[in-house]
Design a protein around this nucleic acid. Sequence first.
DNA 1: GACGAAATAAAGCCAAAGCTACATTTTTGA
DNA 2: TCAAAAATGTAGCTTTGGCTTTATTTCGTC
Lengths: 146, 146
Amino acid sequence: MPQTEQTCTAAESEAADRFNQARAAQSVAILEDYAEMIGDLMEEMGEARITDIAKRMGVTHPTATKAVARLKREGLAVSRPYRGVFLTEDGLALADRVRARHRVVVEVLTALGVPPETAELDAEGMEHHVSDVTLKAFEAFLDARR
Amino acid sequence: MPQTEQTCTAAESEAADRFNQARAAQSVAILEDYAEMIGDLMEEMGEARITDIAKRMGVTHPTATKAVARLKREGLAVSRPYRGVFLTEDGLALADRVRARHRVVVEVLTALGVPPETAELDAEGMEHHVSDVTLKAFEAFLDARR
DNA sequence: GACGAAATAAAGCCAAAGCTACATTTTTGA
DNA sequence: TCAAAAATGTAGCTTTGGCTTTATTTCGTC
Ligand SMILES: [Mn+2]
Ligand SMILES: [Mn+2]
Ligand SMILES: [Mn+2]
Ligand SMILES: [Mn+2]
């Protein structure tokens, strides 16, 4: 039977889909940034202290504590009171994926003529909205021009 | 006198700057999306009704109402109770800038081999983190390959 | 070992952005 | 005309991610 029921137009639902995807990406952006950064600190210092996390993120330490609580709740990190924070296996995997994507985005931007410092700044926000499909395209583009 | 005072390392302050810029961009992202979208509705229908705004954004109407309240507070829109929403001169200028940037981002993505539908989806989030410097680079890149 | 400094925790405030539920106004059409 | 439907407003709840302030714990040093 022809489905003529329609609660919204095509333009409406397409736009809504776009905004919903952008919102979804944004809701994990902070998790991604913290995971990547805690991974960096673990690499550099062996562990990630709340103070160092807060300094790197440019926030106060209670804010960092809350973010770490969310990471723990999502199974991405572990920590005991007054001790350092450590990524779980899942957290490490996320950190690695995010770090690799970050690098690709920066490389693409610089390849397009964006100054390196600007590329770093813009990539920090853009990266979270780069889907797997787009990431593959970016990698192919970079490979092709070597 | 040599300024040896240092409250944080270079790595820390650079990272913090990056995250602060990303946060700043995010805080205006929703304003930008609503402004662009209300501009579209004004073009298509002469005015933007709360119901249509909500449908396009994929949110409920109270959420749309709150966003419009913020636009009005920031001098980007005007409206009277139970009537349509209209962009101010500032709001229109913002909408035009945002719409142009959106198009450039989509074009760059497709030029890099991203499928059009994916480009539209990803651009909706990425656009807000594209600085003026990067936008200029994007435009130059597109111009060069014509 | 004790004490001061540093780090961490905990409590609570705020604004933004989503939602539901309900009240009110406007529009539509019989 | 006027009653039902649609649109809009309003109230209030939740989560998130900032913040400040205050309490507690750990650490470094003498
Ligand atoms: Mn980031
Ligand atoms: Mn990053
Ligand atoms: Mn957008
Ligand atoms: Mn857009």
